[in-house]
């Protein structure tokens, strides 16, 4: 198998790209789909900046061959907001000052989303463990943990319908 037209499911939409087996998922996302929210940093699986959700699970797009992501559901940071309305995690990162330079934020938020999808009411320790694979060099993490807790609370309010969000 060499060059092929591959169909990916990215942020709920079908997207096609011409790929070769040696292409990395991060490059297809950034260069072919212009989804530059996914960041490239360490390239070694240490920093988590390239994290996307593959079938809901946090995955390192810089260490994944694009060809192996065919048929899986890919969620990048661009897929979180609904139109102009930010996802509760995005909003709480803004509100809590959990963003400074912002480079780790997409990966951080996607790891947090995967956590909240599995466990809507995580303890601080569970949040720490869930974000252990995402490095931030600006905020010192406290604001980030606060933001995840705030988002968890906001999403719970949402799901009980008191402050329904479409």
């Amino acid at each position: 198998m060499t060059k092929q037209i591959a169909a990916f499911t990215v942020n709920g939409a079908e997207r096609e790209a011409i790929i070769e087996p040696h292409m990395l998922l991060i490059d297809v996302l950034r260069d072919q789909f212009a989804l530059t929210g996914t960041k490239y940093a360490c390239g070694t699986g240490d920093c988590g900046a390239c994290t996307v959700l593959l079938d809901g699970k946090p995955s390192l797009s810089c260490l994944i061959l694009a060809v192996t992501a065919i048929g899986k559901s890919i969620l990048t940071i661009e897929g979180l907001a609904e139109g102009p309305e930010l996802h509760p995690l995005q909003q709480s990162f803004v509100d809590e000052g959990a963003i400074q330079c912002g480079f780790c934020t997409p990966g951080m938020i996607l790891s947090a989303k995967s956590l909240l999808d599995e466990n809507p009411d995580p303890s601080l320790d569970e949040i720490r463990h869930a974000l252990a694979g995402n490095l931030c060099r600006c905020t010192g993490y406290v604001a980030i943990f606060n933001a995840v807790q705030a988002a968890a609370a906001a999403m719970k309010t949402d799901s009980t319908g008191t402050e329904a969000r479409p």
Binding site: G48, S59, A132
Partner: peptide, 9 residues
């Protein structure tokens, strides 16, 4: 092993 991503993959 710290990273969730590494353990997922």
């Amino acid at each position: 092993i710290g990273s969730v991503q590494v353990k997922v993959q």
